[in-house]
Amino acid sequence: MTTLIFDCDGVLSDTERDGHRPAFNQTFAEMSVPLDWSEEEYAHKLQIAGGKERMASELTPEFVRANGLPTDPEGQAATIAAWHARKTAIYTQMAAAGKLPPRPGVHRIIAAAQDAGWTLAVASTSAEASVRAILEAAVGPERAARFDAVLAGDVVKAKKPAPDIYLLALERLGVDPADVLVVEDSRNGLLAATAAGLRCLLTVNGYTEGEPNDEAILVVSTLGDPDGEHTRVIANRSRATPGEVVTLADLARCLE
């Protein structure tokens, strides 16, 4: 049985640009933290997997001292946890309000895969509440509930590009790696999937299109919608032959 495992951010929705960065910046403003990540700054932050980890990267000795933040590890961890909890709440509210629409082709492919009896999962290092909100916004509550697994947040210690989240997905799903295709959007995700022995399709975005992608079986601009944005093939190392859109048959051919 064919299995599709989706990353969340940048795959199900263009969340980094439209959701996470604004939510981080709103949190900083509410918490009186003198940070306001620009598009360019946030692009660099995306090289760090995990929201708490991105926030923690700002806690240099100089920044901590200048802003009266805790200097001990426990105090800093508590501060980051409080910031991140507020950021997650802001982001989840945005998703629930429909402010983060799915990327082209996501609903179409998920519906087709479920109707064909494929196994579906999400594997993300984002907070579980955020991931579930994005998934429901992308495909609706009924189809979201039919996913075989949603793995998110701190379910593994090592985040992408470590393969841990995908190794856990294989264990939970009990599937053959040869029958699994991962849909990712970034190099960190690509490296995580391939390190777990899985083939990976990339749907890149403005933050990730310039990243190396040699390990990907297929790289496209989007999965595409017949009546909306069409697919642009960037690299193809598979037997798939996408036209205006990536089809379920194309995904199956990525595993041949």
Rank of each mutant, 00 (worst) to 15 (best):
A77H: 07
K159A: 03
A178H: 05
V122C: 07
F24S: 02
I110N: 04
P73F: 11
G117E: 07
E256C: 07
L168N: 01
N213S: 13
A133I: 06
G10I: 00
H107I: 01
A252R: 14
D179V: 11
I90V: 11
L181V: 04
L46I: 10
G243C: 04
G10D: 01
P61K: 01
D14Y: 09
T3H: 02
V180S: 00
K99V: 09
T71W: 08
Q114M: 12
E62I: 06
R172W: 03
A29G: 11
T2F: 12
V106I: 15
E256G: 13
A152W: 03
A152S: 14
R103A: 04
A49S: 15
A178C: 05
G153F: 05
Q76L: 14
R172N: 01
H20S: 06
Q93H: 08
G68Q: 13
A81L: 06
A145T: 09
D225F: 01
A43E: 09
R199F: 07
L255G: 01
N25M: 03
K87L: 11
P104D: 04
A116C: 12
A235F: 02
Y166N: 06
Y42C: 02
R17A: 11
R232G: 10
G117T: 10
P161K: 03
G174V: 09
A56H: 14
R199K: 14
K45F: 14
S186I: 10
T3A: 10
L181D: 07
L190I: 00
F6K: 09
E40Q: 13
D36F: 11
M1W: 02
D9Y: 06
K159W: 04
Y42W: 02
P242T: 10
G228I: 09
E171P: 02
V156F: 03
H44M: 15
D148I: 05
F63K: 11
